[in-house]
């Protein structure tokens, strides 16, 4: 695994990142630092409303931090780098309703027709070939998110950012999607950064879990997850090691959540 090559330059380095929405206003992110090695699957968890989406937008260069920096393979970017792909949280807001599934997948590919074999390959990777000519609003939630996933892998990214991608689907679909995403990321040797509030999901899928504090968010702890691959929803989740890690992460997140002020916190 790429993990073992300690000298490899990180594909992503978040260094002392701080961000507030208004100049001089309260900070959302406060001096956040962590690294991601090539091929690594990192999950970022934290209490809800702690600024996970803001972090992801800074990492994607959709937003610039106030202090600190985000380096992609050692470089700073003002706009999202071409090797980066994002799957957004709300699938029914991130697909173009006027484009068919096939055209949605082809959206980010320059000069490639929607009939190109690449498109069908990406669709078959997410088991959506049969729906290629449907429109997003004709699909179920899970299918829409698979379409968004196909769109993000068709460009053959090096780094895939997932912003709570399974948050709004039912439990069974969620499990299927987790297995699908893990399979794709491993077969494409993708570096993946998953932002989630689901601790089971984070521990089950990731090689490393980054636990965030409540606002202003900073990194509380980075936990290496050495569960063997391939992971199985039943077998892996019943191992003592999984339960131990889950217990540890859960305790950290709960400690943070208890520090939350009474008022409702919303992200973005």
């Amino acid at each position: 695994m790429a993990d073992s090559t300690a000298v490899t330059k990180p594909i992503l380095a978040v260094q002392n990142l701080s961000k507030s929405f208004t100049t001089g206003g309260p900070r959302i992110l406060n001096g956040m630092t962590f690294h991601q090695k090539p091929g690594q699957f990192v999950a970022v968890v934290g209490p809800s409303g702690c600024g996970k989406t803001t972090l992801l937008r800074c990492i994607a260069a959709l937003m610039q931090p106030d202090e600190g920096e985000v380096l992609h393979r050692g470089q700073h970017f003002d706009d999202p780098p071409s090797w980066l792909s994002v799957v957004f949280q709300d699938y029914n807001r991130s697909l173009f309703p006027w484009l068919s599934v096939r055209q949605n997948v082809a959206f980010g590919l320059r000069g490639v027709s929607a009939r190109d074999p690449q498109i069908m390959a990406a669709l078959s990777a997410v088991n959506l070939e049969h729906a290629a000519d449907l429109y997003p609003w004709q699909l179920s939630g899970g299918m829409q998110q698979r379409c968004a996933l196909a769109r993000s892998i068709v460009v053959k990214p090096k780094l895939l950012l997932l912003d709570e991608p399974f948050a709004s689907v039912d439990a069974q679909t969620r499990i299927d999607l987790q297995d699908m995403v893990m399979g794709i990321c491993r077969s494409m040797q993708l570096s993946t950064l998953l932002v989630t509030h689901d601790i089971d999901e984070a521990v089950f899928m990731a090689d490393k879990v980054v636990v965030l504090s409540t606002r202003p968010a900073r990194v509380v702890e980075e936990i290496a997850i050495d569960l063997p691959h391939p992971r199985d929803q039943l077998v892996t989740k019943e191992t003592p090691e999984f339960l131990r890690l889950r217990h540890h992460v859960y305790t950290l997140v709960r400690q943070q959540a208890q520090k939350l002020p009474r008022e409702t916190q919303t992200e973005r």
């Binding site: 959709l62 994002v86 980010g108």
Partner: peptide, 29 residues
């Protein structure tokens, strides 16, 4: 226009003009 769609366009590397033509115009139609 949903800001998420604009984000998708930015991640896909579209220029401002392309964004207006391929995302904002159809969404505003």
């Amino acid at each position: 226009v949903d800001p998420t769609l604009i984000d998708v366009a930015r991640v896909s590397g579209l220029s401002t003009i392309e964004r207006l033509w391929r995302v904002v115009l159809p969404a505003a139609l």
